[in-house]
Amino acid sequence: MLSRLNPLTTLAACGAAATFTVAASNWPVSVAVAVAALGAGVGAGVLRRVLAASAVILLPLWFSLLVLHGLFFPEGRTVLAGWGPARITVEGLAFALEMGTRTTGCVLVLLLFSFVVNVPDLVATMTTRRIPPQFGYVLASTLTLAPAITEQLARIRQAQEARGLVLGGSLVQRLAAARLQMVPLVLALIQDAAERAHALDARGFNSPGPHSTYREVADTRGQRTFRRAVLGLAAAAVILRLSASWFGVPVLPSPLAGNE
């Protein structure tokens, strides 16, 4: 269902959810956003990919936050246990929880967007808006180039191994092996890029004025209203939070605030 929406609608919804999470900075809100993102991932059938990609990012982050703030939090007062300079404090754990859940919520929501969105649709939509066509080109080109370059790198490694390249050994040998793979790769890529530039120039890519696209992306009045609503909501959350911090009005009391 999500992938059939206009890409801008998905982008607006996910961006607004991430902004709202940061503006709220309240762990129950962050957890709710994370759970909602996972639920939407189940609905769109991308849950497994979202989980795999987010685990790579979030596990080291959580580990680092828990060790850093769990053990070393000089501002902490309520000490649970201590060994010399390392002290487990309630405030430190609460801070790690607050920061960790906030990042988790944002990462899950944004990853959901990148796995759900149809990149050609996104590029076509951006072309019809006033975003420079170069941005769309770079986006689409990078996403299609990444697997191609990985494949090219594997071919270069095979070719060099056939000529006697040995991976491993001492540090100097490994650096020499890295150089033997990098130089042909970079040279081939720069050569390819030059050819692509000629092809694009011949098709008037860099000519000024509006660019049109063959791809029609459906958009409905309902989606336009929805986008305006969620963006307005996110902006309101940001304004509320900023004014609260500048004028000292508490919005959502953080669990930390009570411990000060």
Partner: peptide, 15 residues
């Protein structure tokens, strides 16, 4: 940016 530089950007990103 001229096209010759622009086409290098995706290459740089993947690099």
């Amino acid at each position: 940016l001229p096209t010759s530089t622009l086409v290098l950007i995706p290459v740089a990103l993947v690099l």
